[in-house]
Write a protein that binds this DNA or RNA. Structure first.
Length: 734
RNA sequence: GGGCGGUUAGCUCAGUUGGCUAGAGCGCAUCCUUGACGUGGAUGAGGCCAUAGGUUCAAGUCCUAUACCGCCCACCA
C-alpha cells in the first residue's frame, strides 16, 4: 500500500529550504495584522483581544540571544492566542537609545578623525539617523528570521514623528500638572559622555580606595576622614552627630582656614545623617559634589562651592590644583597634608565606584540645572480605571506606581519580582530626564529672555531658543504601550488593545522600563500599561557567563539559525527555561532540537506513506488499543493547553517534545507497524486513522513553538486545503 | 548594610497547590537495525535532592538555622 508522498518529504528536514518562503507566506496573508483576519472572516470582529508590544531593541547594532529569547516567548504566546481565537496583536519597533547610539556614532567619527562639534548638531544628527536606519533594517531582518508574527503595519520607532507627538504631549501635560520641573540639583554627571544620567543608569563597581584622616588646619578641633580629598577644597562645613559627646561642644562654631592654598570657611553643624561610628565620626561637607552633603547643606543653609567642572578637572585658583584631573589633585592635596603634618591616618578601604552604565565614565556628582519628574508631588488624577483609585482623587506618581501592583492589576511572573519592584519604588527619588546629548527628543521648552514656553509646537514669533538638551530615552519608551497605539489621539486601537495583555522582557530592565511604563500609563491614561509581566532570565553562554559584546562571547542568533534552523533555536531557548532564571545556552542543546525537527519530519513521512487517504474521510471504529491511545492524546492536549494558559512554556514545550518522540514515535508508531503490514483491515483502518489524527493534531499543538516546520508539514498533509495556513487554524482544545 | 535567588545524575537544568519507586537533554556503557528517521532503536550505569533541626500519615517540595555561589538595591563620608 504505497502512497504518493510529497517530494519535499523524501529528504531529511532542511530548514533553509522553507523558512524564508514560509515567512513570506505568513506575511503575504496579512494575518499578522488582526484586522485582516477579521476582513477575511477567520476571526469574528468581537473576538477578545490579546496584545503585546515587542520590547523595542536599541538601534545600536545586532540582536543577541537575549532578544531571540524575548521574541520566542512572545511569538509562542501570540501564536497560541491567535489560534485560540483572540484578536492577537503584537507590535514591533525599535528604540533610539539616545546615549548608546550617539556614542556609537561618535566613536565611528573618531576613527575618521572627526569630532561632532566640528560638523555641528544638524550634520551630526543626520549621521546618527543614517546609522539608526541601517541598524533598523538589520534588526527587522533578525526579527523576521526568528519567525516573529509581529504586525509590521504597526511598526514604530521611539523617535519617529508619531512618537515625537506623544512625547511632547506627555511632557506638556506633566509640566502643566507641576510634575515636571526644572531644578538645581546634584546630578550624576558622566564626564566621559558629557551628560547627566539617571540614578538607574549608574552602576556600582567594587574597588579599593585610600581613606585619608586629616585636619583642615593645625588648630582645627575635629579631624575628618574622606576618600575624596580633592573635593575638600569645596567644603563649607563639618557635620557631626548632634549627640556625639566628643564634638557637641563645637557645633555652631565657624573657622577660616587656608587649605592647600584655598581659603575655606567651615562651619560645624550637627546632623542626624552622620554615623558617629564611622571614620572619625565627622564628615567634611562638600555640598556641590555629594548628594548626601547637598542634603545636609540644605538643612543647615550652607554655602555651596563648586570646585570640579564638567570635564572632572579642578576649578580652583591655586596653581598646584587648577585644571588638574581629580585623581592628580588628590595626590597634590595628600602631599600638602603630609608636608604640613595634617594627615593623621591613611588606610585602604573597600568602597563602591560609581560608573555610567553606557559610557563607563566615573560619575562625578555635580550641581546642575536639569529637568526632573517629581514622583512625590500630589496632583489630581482626572480619570482612573485602576483598582482602588477613582477619578478625581489626589495621588502621587509614586503612589500610582505602587497601587498598580498592590491592587493586583499588574501581576509579575515570577512573583518574587513584585518585591524588587516595591523596593525600588520605596527608594525612588525624582527622575532626572534631561540629557546633554544631541540625539533624542529635544526638550519641548523654548526660552526668550525671561520668558519660557512649554508646548508641543514652537511658540510663534521670533527670538525663541529651544532648550538644547534631549530627553532620557526611557521617557519615550515609557509611553510605548500607548504611543504605539496612536495616543494622544483617542483611537480605536487604544480602546481595543490597551491595557496590553502581557509584557515580556528581561528582568534587568524592570526598573528602567517596566516601572517607567507603569508611571506613564497610570498618569496619562489612568490605567495600567499591561496586566501580566513575564520576566525572563539572562541568556548566558555554555560556561554560564553573561553574553556581552565586549566579552566577545555574544552569539548572533542568526548564526545558530543558519546551523540548526529557527525552530531548533526556539525550542532550545524555551525547554526547561523557567521565568526569571538565567539560561545557559550551548550548541548541543540547539542541536538536540534540530534532531527533534528531523524526527517530526520523518514521522510525518512515515504516517503519510502508510495511510490511505480514503480511510480518513470518516472515523472508523477504533480498536481497544487505539481508543486508549486516543484518550491518552486528548488528555495530553489538555495538559499542554493548561500549561500554556499558566505561562508554563518551559513545561509545555518539554511535554510536547517528550510526547511526540517517546509516546507517539517510539510507542504508537512502532506498535502499529505490524498491523499496517498485516491483513486485518479493520485494525488497519483504525491504526491509520489514529496515526494520522495524532500527527495532525500534534502539528497544531507544536505550531506556536516550532512554527516553520509545522507550517511546512501542514502544507504537505493530504487533508490540508490549498493555501490553508496553520497559523490561523483553531486550537484543538477548548 | 538591606533584599532576592540558587545549591537535584559527569555537564546544563526541570520537578506547578507536599504523594517520587526523583526526571529530561547532552555525555557515558552494551547491544540492535537494508525501507519513517544512524539527526535512529533497545537496555543500562550514575543521585543520603548543600548541611542540621522541625512540621506532617507523607518533604526535593513547607518552617527555622548554617555554609558556599550569584544577582539587585543603598548617601556610610
Amino acid at each position: 500500500m504505497e502512497h504518493d508522498i510529497p517530494e519535499e518529504l523524501l529528504s531529511p528536514y532542511n530548514p533553509h529550504d522553507t523558512e524564508e518562503t514560509t515567512y513570506d507566506r505568513w506575511r503575504a496573508s496579512g494575518y499578522f495584522h488582526p484586522e485582516t483576519q477579521i476582513e477575511h472572516g477567520t476571526l469574528p470582529p468581537d473576538a477578545p483581544s490579546f496584545s503585546m508590544v515587542l520590547p523595542p531593541p536599541n538601534v545600536t547594532g545586532v540582536l543577541h540571544d537575549g532578544h531571540a529569547l524575548t521574541i520566542t516567548i512572545e511569538d509562542i504566546m501570540i501564536r497560541y492566542k491567535r489560534m485560540r481565537g483572540y484578536r492577537a496583536l503584537w507590535i514591533p519597533g525599535t528604540d533610539h537609545a539616545a546615549i548608546a547610539t550617539q556614542s556609537k556614532v561618535e566613536k565611528q567619527l573618531d576613527k575618521e578623525g572627526v569630532k561632532k562639534q566640528d560638523i555641528g548638531r544638524e550634520k551630526f544628527l543626520e549621521k546618527v539617523q543614517a546609522f539608526a536606519l541601517e541598524s533598523q533594517s538589520t534588526i527587522q531582518n533578525q526579527i523576521r528570521r526568528m519567525g516573529a508574527s509581529v504586525d509590521w503595519e504597526r511598526e514604530a520607532f521611539t523617535l519617529d514623528e508619531k512618537r515625537q507627538r506623544a512625547v511632547y504631549t506627555a511632557f506638556k501635560r506633566m509640566f502643566d500638572d507641576g510634575l515636571i520641573y526644572r531644578g538645581h540639583r546634584i546630578v550624576n554627571w558622566d564626564p566621559k559622555g558629557r551628560t547627566t544620567v539617571s540614578d538607574d543608569e549608574v552602576e556600582h563597581e567594587e574597588g579599593s580606595a585610600t581613606l585619608y584622616t586629616f585636619r583642615y588646619s593645625p588648630d582645627f578641633p575635629i579631624p575628618v576622614a574622606t576618600t575624596r580629598l580633592e573635593t575638600k577644597v569645596g567644603d563649607t562645613a563639618v557635620a557631626v552627630h548632634p549627640e556625639d559627646e566628643r564634638y557637641r561642644q563645637y557645633i555652631g562654631q565657624e573657622f577660616d582656614v587656608s587649605f592647600c592654598g584655598v581659603d575655606l570657611h567651615i562651619k560645624i553643624v550637627g546632623d542626624e545623617a552622620v554615623d558617629p561610628a564611622f571614620g572619625t565620626g565627622a564628615v567634611g561637607v562638600t555640598p556641590a559634589h555629594s548628594q548626601t552633603d547637598w542634603e545636609i547643606a540644605e538643612r543647615h543653609n550652607l554655602q555651596m562651592v563648586q570646585v570640579i567642572d564638567e570635564r572632572a578637572r579642578m576649578m580652583v585658583q591655586d596653581e598646584r590644583l587648577a585644571e588638574k584631573k581629580t585623581g592628580e589633585a588628590r595626590e597634590v592635596i595628600a602631599d600638602w597634608l603630609r608636608d604640613n603634618n595634617l594627615l593623621e591616618n591613611e588606610e585602604t578601604v573597600e568602597h563602591n565606584i560609581s560608573k555610567a552604565q553606557r559610557s563607563g565614565g566615573v560619575i562625578e556628582p555635580l550641581p546642575k540645572i536639569q529637568w526632573f519628574i517629581d514622583v512625590n508631588k500630589e496632583f489630581t488624577l482626572p480619570r482612573s480605571n485602576l483598582t482602588g483609585i477613582s477619578g478625581g482623587e489626589t495621588v502621587t506618581l509614586k503612589g500610582l506606581m505602587r497601587a498598580a501592583v498592590e491592587s493586583g492589576d499588574i501581576r509579575f511572573i515570577p512573583e518574587r519580582f513584585t518585591k524588587n519592584y516595591f523596593n525600588w519604588i520605596n527608594n525612588l527619588r525624582d527622575w532626572c530626564i534631561s540629557r546633554q546629548i544631541w540625539y533624542g527628543h529635544r526638550i519641548p521648552v523654548w526660552y526668550r529672555g525671561e520668558e519660557i514656553s512649554v508646548d508641543t509646537q514652537p511658540p510663534k514669533g521670533g527670538g525663541w531658543e529651544q532648550d538644547p538638551d534631549t530627553l532620557d530615552t526611557w521617557f519615550s519608551s515609557g509611553l510605548w504601550t500607548f504611543s504605539t497605539l496612536g495616543w494622544p489621539d483617542e483611537t480605536d486601537d487604544l480602546k481595543i488593545y490597551h491595557p496590553t495583555s502581557m509584557l515580556e522582557t528581561g528582568h534587568d530592565i524592570l526598573f528602567f522600563w517596566i516601572a517607567r511604563m507603569v508611571l506613564m500609563s497610570t498618569y496619562h491614561l489612568g490605567e495600567v500599561p499591561f496586566k501580566t509581566v513575564y520576566l525572563h532570565g539572562m541568556v548566558r553562554d555554555a560556561k554560564g557567563e553573561k553574553m556581552s559584546k565586549s566579552k566577545g562571547n555574544a552569539i548572533d542568533p542568526i548564526e545558530e539559525i543558519e546551523k540548526f534552523g529557527t525552530d531548533a533555536l526556539r525550542m532550545a531557548l524555551i525547554v526547561g527555561n523557567t521565568p526569571g532564571t538565567d539560561l545557559s545556552l550551548s550548541e548541543n542543546k540547539i542541536k538536540a532540537y534540530k534532531h527533534f525537527a528531523n524526527k517530526i519530519w520523518n514521522a510525518t513521512r512515515f504516517v503519510i506513506s502508510n495511510v490511505d487517504t480514503d480511510n480518513l474521510k470518516e472515523k472508523p471504529s477504533l480498536t481497544e488499543a487505539d481508543r486508549t491511545r486516543l484518550d491518552e492524546f486528548q488528555q495530553f492536549s489538555k495538559t499542554v493547553t493548561k500549561e500554556l494558559d499558566a505561562y508554563h512554556l518551559h513545561i509545555a514545550s518539554e511535554k510536547l517534545y517528550d510526547y511526540f518522540w517517546h509516546t507517539f514515535a517510539d510507542g504508537i508508531i512502532e506498535e502499529r507497524k505490524e498491523i499496517l503490514n498485516g491483513t486485518d483491515e479493520t485494525a488497519k483502518a483504525s491504526a491509520q486513522w489514529l496515526l494520522y489524527h495524532i500527527l495532525h493534531e500534534s502539528i497544531i499543538l507544536l505550531h506556536p513553538f516550532m512554527p516553520f516546520i509545522t507550517e511546512t508539514i501542514w502544507s504537505l498533509l493530504p487533508t490540508t486545503p490549498t493555501d490553508d495556513l496553520l497559523m490561523v487554524r483553531s486550537w484543538p482544545v477548548e
